[in-house]
Design a protein around this nucleic acid. Structure first.
Lengths: 202, 202
DNA sequence: AACAAGTCGTACAGGTGTGTTCAGGTTAGG
DNA sequence: CCTAACCTGAACACACCTGTACGACTTGTT
């Protein structure tokens, strides 16, 4: 495709980037942040924002896409092979606070974007966890008496739970990952089998 | 205190009740439902609402208080003594959809009411679960390597998780309680001990 | 340098929600 | 039955957000 016709100026690209970044931050704090607020946080005029994004939905979409891309990028670097227990711990370590920051943003997206678009954006990261859980089940490490979708949802719920506890001042960031993995690994253990202990390898 | 001076008419009391009830329903569906919407749902003029509640915050507070009271009432009828595992299962059975309905309402409250008020309203139900979890820990049935507040939060998170799954059509209401208890009991199991099986009693 | 692209503040129009006021109709309760 | 309390729709003032239009100024690119 010819990229010559729409040769944007470096100036404009900088503005767009600042806007998307500010949108991710503002919407991450408050899903109903106004465009004025976002523009101000980006250090640009409100009119400039409208010069690059036709509607609020476009801004939300851009911010959401950016967050997903960042997340995918970080998760690509994580080794999810080997012992499912260890792999899951590695996954949690990287993604728990990513998921947290994206939560409020997701709320904004759910109100501004069509459901299909949400699913489209979310399908990438979701598939990663689902296949890991499926593998753990096949290897008899994770329980099979509950649906995969349920287990994945529980994982995300517990990560959100950690974010809540931190906000409430009842948990420190450095202990969050440990709490999450300890909880989830126990929740994923097949009935009758002993809950894995932190020290015990394999 | 003289209650004679403010002898409200039966008419007014009926209106107030209708408003609070409608508020609980509307805010339960949508945390940012307008007062017009609530008044309409209550079958009452918008002005009438303002005759009884000075501000939006007062309406939210009344709706929230009502929901908490209802919840407390229902929970008072639940026997939380005996085997903590069974007691927890009984608690989940009654409260999981109660918690769900109150969730959106809580979101509204968090935006309209001071944090202290929220904590005040929420302290009653919270104490109940906390003491149950504490007892389970004392009896070596629940894990002690994680804080009580964390375990309680996980319980609530998993209940929300179930509500999400139902809304997404991946879970039916009748199976929700089973999924929740199966998950939470495993999550609460001390490391090294086997996770309880549904069929196995005591 | 010079033109186009970008940015800016201001201002306007349309929409929605919040509180308040007012005059007139309805109903409960002594 | 009769009064005061209650309900009502309509209307107003205020605030905020969205989206658009305009003229003037600044900046990047060639």
């Amino acid at each position: 495709m010819g990229s010559k016709s729409t040769a944007k100026r470096a100036d404009a690209l900088r503005s767009i980037d600042a806007i998307v970044q500010a949108a991710a931050e503002c919407l991450g704090r408050n899903p109903e942040a106004s465009l004025s607020e976002i523009a101000r946080a980006a250090g640009v005029g409100r009119v400039t924002l409208y010069a690059h994004f036709a509607s609020r939905a476009e801004v939300v979409d851009a911010a959401m896409s950016r967050a997903i891309d960042r997340g995918n990028e970080a998760l690509d670097a994580v080794d999810l092979t080997g012992d499912p227990l260890v792999a899951l711990a590695r996954y949690v370590e990287v993604s728990w606070h990513l998921v947290d920051q994206a939560r409020a943003l997701l709320v904004a997206a759910q109100r501004e974007l069509p459901a299909g678009r949400i699913r489209e954006l979310h399908s990438g990261p979701a598939a990663r966890v689902e296949s890991l859980v499926a593998r753990g089940r096949a290897e008899h490490v994770f329980r099979t008496d509950l649906p995969i979708s349920w287990l994945v949802n529980v994982l995300h719920s517990v990560m959100h739970s950690a974010a809540d506890e931190i906000r409430a001042g009842r948990l420190t960031s450095d202990r969050a990952a440990d709490h999450i993995t300890a909880t989830v690994l126990a929740a994923f253990t097949p009935p009758g089998k002993p809950v894995p202990q932190p020290g015990a390898g394999a």
